[in-house]
């Protein structure tokens, strides 16, 4: 029972992280229907950004956080500007291929700079955050990831619900020509969605880095897990992404705990194929309505 509870809690926290990073993915998909295959690399970019600031530059942790967030925001903007913008209006296949290319490029670049070794952040999380509950212990990383996740979900929920820019972004997702006719700057919305996605990814990258250490390969495979998560939830649903993340997190941990550790890594993909066969648009996704 304790084993079960421990797995449950681990799965929940990991799942929450998946959900958080999936948020960035859904954002890009919703605003510009681009599947971002460079998602894992965005995670890794954020994690290494933080690593440089905290270990090499030795800045205070809070400052590191802020600089990373601002830096990744700018990075997302730059990526959109340099690589995505020239392809606006091209076929979707080409744009998706472009993100595949970007992913290989960033991964190679990071491997060249940081190597394939495991890096670690300094210990900075206060021990007071960890929870001891009988035999079940929740390490402070998980608690803090939970808190960070909640804060981010809250902030973004507020942003999309009430701020003007959030409403513009949603309007572009809903009906691009109408948004254009009202003077919404669609290109800026695309750029903004990439920037926000980069920030969200950086956040989850950092927390994943605290839990497992920072390694380019590991983070980029982590990034690909966003696909099972969002497929489960439906590609364009933020609520679905959160639930999908939690389900995948739990599933992974239970498989790892009860069946076999090696199966743990593929289980999300097996589920993914099954879901696609049974319910192609995910649990909450909206069905595409097509006309010739």
């Amino acid at each position: 029972m304790e084993f079960f509870a421990q797995l449950f809690i681990n799965g929940l926290s990991i799942g929450f992280l998946y959900a958080l990073s999936a948020l960035g993915f859904v954002m890009i998909f919703k605003s510009s229907s681009v599947l971002n295959f460079a998602h894992g690399e965005l995670l890794a970019l954020g994690a290494f950004f933080f690593l440089i600031l905290s270990v090499w530059a030795k800045l205070p942790i809070v400052l590191c956080f802020l600089v990373t967030l601002v830096g990744c925001f700018a990075l997302g903007f730059i990526i959109e500007r340099l690589f995505l913008r020239p392809l606006i209006g091209e076929a979707l296949i080409e744009v998706i291929m472009l993100t595949v290319g970007l992913s290989a490029m960033f991964k190679g670049l990071m491997l060249l700079i940081f190597g394939g070794n495991l890096h670690n952040y300094p210990d900075f999380l206060p021990e007071a955050l960890s929870i001891q509950w009988g035999a079940i212990s929740v390490p402070s990383v998980y608690v803090s990831s939970f808190i960070i996740g909640l804060i981010f979900l809250g902030v973004f929920g507020f942003f999309f619900k009430y701020s003007s820019h959030g409403i513009y972004m949603r309007s572009v997702a809903d009906h691009q020509p109408a948004a254009l006719s009202l003077g919404v700057n669609v290109r800026r919305v695309f750029a903004l969605s990439w920037a926000i996605a980069a920030v969200v990814c950086a956040m989850s990258g950092i927390v994943l880095g605290i839990i497992n250490g920072i390694n380019v390969h590991q983070l980029s495979t982590m990034g690909l897990k966003v696909f099972p998560v969002v497929i489960l939830g439906g590609l364009d649903s933020i609520g679905g992404a959160i639930l999908g993340g939690i389900i995948i997190g739990l599933l992974e941990n239970f498989t790892g705990g009860y069946i076999s550790t090696s199966l743990r890594e593929v289980v999300p993909y097996i589920v993914l194929v099954l879901i696609l066969l049974v319910k192609p648009y995910g649990l909450f996704g909206s069905e595409e309505i097509e006309r010739v």
Binding site: Y168, S171, A179, L182, V184
Partner: peptide
Amino acid sequence: ENLRVGTAA
């Protein structure tokens, strides 16, 4: 919210 999109211009 629909109406608010009109403020974009």
